[in-house]
Amino acid sequence: MTIETTKVDRENLLYRLGFLTRRWRQVLDSAFQSLGVTDAAWRPLLHLHHMGDGIRQKDLAASLGIEGPTLTRILDQLIVKRLIDRSEDASDRRAKLLALSPQGRAMVTQITAKVATLEHDLLSEFSDLEIDQMTLFVERLEKRLQETRSRLKG
């Protein structure tokens, strides 16, 4: 089936992308079970890894799209497992700073290795051109979504 012979279905595209994302997370959840981490655990670890140590807890919550109290419960579990460290912000004692512990860094290494393997497996049938086109499409879509969000807030 080619793009030229396929009817473009704009009405379902975003729904399908959302559904695809949920299914991808299910695959990741299954893969990470062997590491002993759940969706509630691996997502904050990866976000913290990408955002860098020393970020505020509220910034991590915003990145994950979850409420502060929900994140606090998750972080408490990650602290017990010694995967993250939480400290007070010297400039604002009410704020909490987060960092990956050495065990957390090791876990992120295992997680990212599994992700890389799964991504390679999933994307291996697509050409570099197709991947580049999809990447550009997603970047443009993200930009348009941000513009829409800003317009609706304003």
Results as ranks from 00 to 15, higher is better:
Thr2Leu: 04
Ile3Arg: 08
Glu4Tyr: 13
Lys7Tyr: 10
Asp9Glu: 12
Arg10Gly: 03
Glu11Pro: 02
Glu11Gln: 09
Asn12Lys: 15
Leu13Lys: 02
Leu13Asn: 02
Leu14Lys: 13
Tyr15Phe: 05
Leu17His: 10
Gly18Leu: 07
Phe19Ala: 08
Leu20Ile: 03
Arg22Met: 07
Arg23Tyr: 08
Arg25Lys: 11
Arg25Asn: 03
Val27Ser: 01
Leu28Asp: 00
Asp29Cys: 05
Ser30Thr: 06
Ala31Glu: 07
Phe32Cys: 00
Phe32Arg: 00
Gln33Thr: 07
Gly36Cys: 05
Gly36Ala: 07
Val37Leu: 10
Thr38Arg: 11
Thr38Ile: 14
Asp39Gly: 11
Ala41Met: 13
Ala41Phe: 12
Ala41Asn: 12
Trp42Leu: 08
Pro44His: 06
Leu45Ser: 07
Leu46Ala: 05
His47Glu: 05
His47Gln: 09
Leu48Tyr: 03
Leu48Thr: 00
His50Pro: 00
His50Gln: 08
Met51Ser: 15
Met51His: 11
Met51Lys: 06
Met51Phe: 11
Gly52Ile: 02
Gly52Asp: 07
Asp53Arg: 02
Ile55Met: 04
Arg56Phe: 00
Gln57Asp: 13
Leu60Ala: 01
Ser63Arg: 11
Ser63Pro: 00
Leu64Asp: 03
Leu64Tyr: 09
Ile66Gly: 01
Ile66Thr: 09
Glu67Cys: 15
Gly68His: 11
Gly68Cys: 05
Pro69Ser: 04
Leu71Val: 12
Arg73Val: 12
Arg73Leu: 10
Leu78His: 04
Val80Ala: 06
Val80Gln: 14
Ser87Met: 15
Ser87Thr: 14
Glu88Tyr: 08
Asp89Ser: 15
Asp92Tyr: 02
Arg94Gly: 09
Arg94Pro: 04
Ala95His: 05
Lys96Met: 06
Lys96Cys: 09
Leu98Lys: 06
Ala99Ile: 01
Pro102Gln: 02
Pro102Asp: 13
Pro102Ile: 01
Gln103Arg: 01
Gln103Gly: 09
Arg105Pro: 08
Thr109His: 06
Ala113Cys: 02
Val115Ile: 08
Ala116Gly: 03
Ala116Lys: 05
Leu118Phe: 06
Glu119Pro: 01
Glu119Lys: 07
Leu122Lys: 06
Glu125His: 10
Phe126Pro: 15
Ser127Glu: 13
Glu130Val: 04
Ile131Met: 11
Met134Pro: 04
Thr135Asp: 12
Thr135Ile: 14
Val138Cys: 11
Val138Asp: 07
Glu142Asp: 09
Glu142Tyr: 13
Lys143Phe: 11
Arg144Gly: 15
Arg144Asn: 07
Leu145Ile: 06
Gln146Ile: 15
Arg149Cys: 14
Arg149Val: 14
Leu152Cys: 03
Lys153Ala: 13
